[in-house]
Structure formats: C-alpha cells, structure tokens
Simulated scan of single mutants.
Amino acid sequence: MMRKTPQFPIFGHPMYMDAVDAMKLFHEVQAMCKAAEQIKRLRLFAEAQFQAVNDYQLKASGGYAGHSH
C-alpha cells in the first residue's frame, strides 16, 4: 500500500504570511543599511516565525516538532 503524503494549505495561512512579511521587513531594513542591532533583531524574529511554521507543519503531519514552550 502506498502511503499518501499529507497536503497542507500553508501558503495562504496567516501564520505563513506573517513569516513572509517578517522576512520582507528584514530584507528592506537590511537594504537601507540600518543599525546592525535592528537588523539582527528582525532577522531573529523572521527566523523564529519560520521555525514556528515548520513546527506547526511537523506537528500537523504527526512528526516530531520539538518541545512546546
């Protein structure tokens, strides 16, 4: 029996869109050569948003998504 790969409508999901917006903001601020601390903060925020999306997808598919805090 073939195992069916679960499909996730994640690309239109608000959680995913928030992560994309955070990454866009990071790149915009980086292009404006703003303060290094501000750029670092935005990068960390964008990375955390995408990590949350990944954890959500793993948990929804029954995979291991690490510890919930």
Rank of each mutant, 00 (worst) to 15 (best):
M1Y: 08
M2K: 15
M2D: 15
R3F: 10
R3P: 05
R3Q: 11
K4Q: 12
K4H: 12
T5H: 04
T5C: 08
T5V: 11
P6L: 00
Q7L: 14
Q7P: 09
P9N: 14
P9S: 11
P9C: 08
I10H: 05
I10L: 07
G12V: 06
H13K: 03
H13N: 08
P14V: 01
P14G: 02
M15F: 07
Y16C: 06
Y16L: 01
Y16P: 01
Y16F: 11
Y16G: 01
M17Q: 11
M17K: 10
D18T: 09
A19D: 02
A19S: 04
A19W: 00
A19E: 01
V20K: 02
A22S: 07
A22N: 02
M23T: 10
K24R: 08
L25T: 10
L25K: 12
L25Q: 14
F26G: 00
F26Q: 03
E28P: 00
E28Q: 06
V29N: 04
Q30D: 14
A31C: 04
A31S: 10
A31D: 11
M32V: 07
C33T: 06
K34G: 08
K34F: 05
A35S: 10
A36H: 11
A36E: 15
E37M: 10
E37S: 14
I39R: 05
I39K: 06
I39Y: 02
K40F: 06
R41S: 12
L42M: 06
L42E: 03
L42K: 03
A46R: 02
A46Y: 02
A48P: 05
Q49W: 03
Q49N: 07
Q49E: 13
F50N: 08
F50T: 09
Q51A: 15
Q51H: 12
A52H: 04
V53E: 04
N54F: 11
N54S: 15
N54A: 15
D55P: 04
D55Q: 10
D55M: 07
Y56T: 13
Y56H: 12
Q57F: 07
Q57S: 10
Q57I: 14
L58F: 08
L58P: 05
L58D: 09
K59M: 12
A60L: 07
G62K: 02
G62N: 00
G62E: 00
G63I: 05
Y64G: 11
Y64T: 11
A65D: 05
S68W: 12
S68F: 13
H69S: 13
H69P: 14
